[in-house]
Design a protein around this nucleic acid. Structure first.
Lengths: 80, 80
DNA sequence: AAATATTTGTACGTATGTATG
DNA sequence: GCATACATACGTACAAATATT
């Protein structure tokens, strides 16, 4: 679903921004539609190799943009 | 300046909120005026006994409220 | 000008708690 | 009860920007 292939610690952009970019791109491309769940934090950790802290910071960016909503115990969802 | 005496891990409120509350109270009381610096992160760590991560989360809360502005290498300042 | 200190920024790991399925 | 998923919180290390000596 989400293409994390460009996430690379050797790039100058902070990792949390790179992860946020990948998630944002997937949402904008309609790969994850409004109301649907993003991959879980631990899934993103596994797919990207970054830490959970970094994933959470990336998600926070999307929350502040109003793109997603986080629900404890359930997941992170694309805003309608 | 800032009264952190009520910051206590045994209270139910998350520590980062407790720290944010103390900073917000000091600002609202005029103990730190607009344009002036808050205590540094490490100073708050020493005064409260919480981790720097927790201090930074507290500051983020105030940033999101528009109460303070953070400048790398300089400090955190009360918004004018 | 240069080195050092201070302060915030990024990022890792680990542990435990809370809410939901 | 158990598994999954997010929440809080500790520690550590190094980088980047700024201020000081």
């Amino acid at each position: 679903m989400v293409d994390f292939s460009e996430v690379d610690p050797d790039r100058i952009e902070p990792l949390y921004e790179q992860v946020a970019d990948a998630l944002r791109a997937a949402i904008r491309a309609g790969e994850i539609r409004p109301g649907y769940r993003l991959p879980s934090e631990s899934a993103i950790v596994q797919e990207t190799g970054v830490s959970r802290l970094t994933v959470r910071r990336a998600v926070q960016v999307l929350v502040s943009e109003g793109l997603v909503t986080v629900v404890q115990g359930r997941g992170t969802f694309v805003s309608r």
